[in-house]
C-alpha cells in the first residue's frame, strides 16, 4: 500500500526512487498538458504496479481522459514524461498500443458489423492471423458471455452487451495493461455489477493491470485496490479508500445525536461535554465534532438530565464524503 502524502513529498520521493523496477506498469513524472492557456493536467505523478486495479476518480472535466490519451500516446504531453511497460508513449506509441488495451469513454463499435466481425477487425489491426483471431475471438466472446450473440449485428445489442463486447475487443490483443475510460457510464445497476465482476475476474485470470477512470464512486470502491482523486488536473490524494478516509478525518470524529427534547438546550448540553470541538444543527440531528470518542459521555449527560436519547451514531467517511470533501476544495 502506498502512503498518502502531500504532492510535494511525493515528488521528493520519486526523485530518490531507483530508476526502473520490473513490476512498475505505469509511471508518470510531472506530467503536464496544456491547451492554450488552459492546463488540463497539472504535474501529475503516479505509479501503477502489476496486478492492481487503480481507480482514477474525478468529476467530469478533471483531465482524466486527457491523462489516459497521454498514457496511450494518442496525444503528446506538454511537459513531463510517461513510461508504460518501459516504453515512452510519445516516442514509441505503436509499442505501447500493442501491449495496452484501451476502451474509450463511448464504446464505439461498427453497428453494421456483427460482434464477431468487430473483434476480427481489431485482431487484424493488431496483426493477428485469421486462424488466431478466430481462436482468440471465440475465447474473448465466451469470456464476456456474448458467444450466443456473436453473429448478431452490434446495432441489436443492448448497452451492457456492447460494453462487454468492448472488453472482449480489448482482451483480444492479450494486453498487459487495460485502460478503461468511464466503463460503467450509462449502465443499469445489474449491468454495472456484471461488468465490474468481469473486470475483477479478468484481472485475476489474465494477470492484468487495470486503470479505470470514473466519477461513480460506489463502483470504484467495489473493485479498486487503490484510487487517485483527480481534480482540476491535479492528483490531490491517492491510496486505498480506508487510508483516504483516515487522512480526511484528521483525528476528528463526527457524530449524529438526537434526543427529546431536541431544542437549543440539547445543543448547549453537548457543547459542554469535554472533547467536543463543534456542534451544529443538522435537519433532524445535532452534528457533533469531537477529538475523542464522546459517545459514552453524551449518553450519560442526556440520561442524567432525564431526557431520552433517540439517536447516537458515529459517522464513517465513505467515498461520498471523501469525494465531496476533496472536490469542494
Amino acid at each position: 500500500m502506498v502512503e498518502v502524502l502531500p504532492i510535494d513529498e511525493q515528488t521528493a520521493q520519486l526523485s530518490v526512487r531507483p530508476a526502473e523496477s520490473i513490476s512498475l506498469i505505469v509511471e508518470t513524472r510531472d506530467l503536464v498538458k496544456r491547451y492554450g492557456d488552459f492546463t488540463a493536467v497539472d504535474h501529475l505523478n503516479f505509479q501503477l504496479t502489476e496486478g492492481e486495479i487503480f481507480g482514477l476518480l474525478g468529476p467530469n472535466g478533471a483531465g482524466k481522459t486527457t491523462t489516459i490519451l497521454m498514457l496511450m500516446g494518442m496525444t503528446d504531453p506538454t511537459e513531463g514524461a510517461v513510461k508504460i511497460l518501459g516504453y515512452d508513449p510519445a516516442r514509441q506509441p505503436i509499442e505501447v498500443k500493442r501491449r495496452v488495451g484501451y476502451l474509450p469513454e463511448r464504446v464505439a463499435l461498427y453497428d453494421d458489423l456483427s460482434a464477431r466481425e468487430n473483434l476480427y477487425y481489431t485482431a487484424d489491426l493488431n496483426g493477428l492471423s485469421y486462424a488466431e483471431s478466430k481462436r482468440r475471438g471465440a475465447w474473448a466472446l465466451e469470456r464476456v458471455g456474448l458467444d450466443a450473440v456473436a453473429s448478431k449485428p452490434v446495432s441489436q445489442l443492448s448497452h451492457g452487451m456492447r460494453q462487454r463486447l468492448g472488453i472482449a475487443d480489448v482482451l483480444i490483443k492479450k494486453p498487459r495493461l487495460v485502460i478503461l475510460d468511464e466503463p460503467t457510464l450509462g449502465l443499469d445497476p445489474e449491468a454495472v455489477n456484471q461488468l465490474l465482476d468481469l473486470i475483477r475476474a479478468m484481472t485475476e485470470e489474465e494477470q492484468l493491470t487495470v486503470l479505470l477512470s470514473s466519477h461513480q464512486l460506489q463502483q470504484v470502491q467495489r473493485i479498486c485496490s487503490r484510487v487517485g482523486i483527480f481534480v482540476k488536473g491535479k492528483l490531490i490524494a491517492h491510496g486505498s479508500i480506508s487510508q483516504l478516509a483516515e487522512r480526511l478525518a484528521g483525528g476528528i470524529r463526527t457524530l449524529e445525536v438526537s434526543a427529546e427534547p431536541n431544542g437549543a438546550e440539547l445543543g448547549e448540553l453537548l457543547r459542554k461535554i469535554p472533547g467536543v470541538v463543534g456542534v451544529e444543527r443538522d435537519a433532524e440531528y445535532w452534528r457533533v465534532r469531537a477529538t475523542v470518542d464522546v459517545r459514552p459521555a453524551i449518553a450519560r449527560a442526556v440520561t442524567d438530565r432525564g431526557w431520552s436519547l433517540f439517536h447516537l451514531r458515529q459517522r464513517d467517511y465513505g467515498l461520498e464524503e471523501i469525494y465531496l470533501k476533496y472536490f469542494q476544495t
Binding site: 505503436i94 474509450p104 464504446v107
Partner: peptide, 14 residues
C-alpha cells in the same frame, strides 16, 4: 461521430 476513430487509433497502427 460514432466514436470509432479513437478506438481505431488506439490500435498499433500508424
Amino acid at each position: 461521430n460514432r466514436g470509432t476513430l479513437s478506438r481505431l487509433l488506439a490500435q498499433p497502427i500508424y
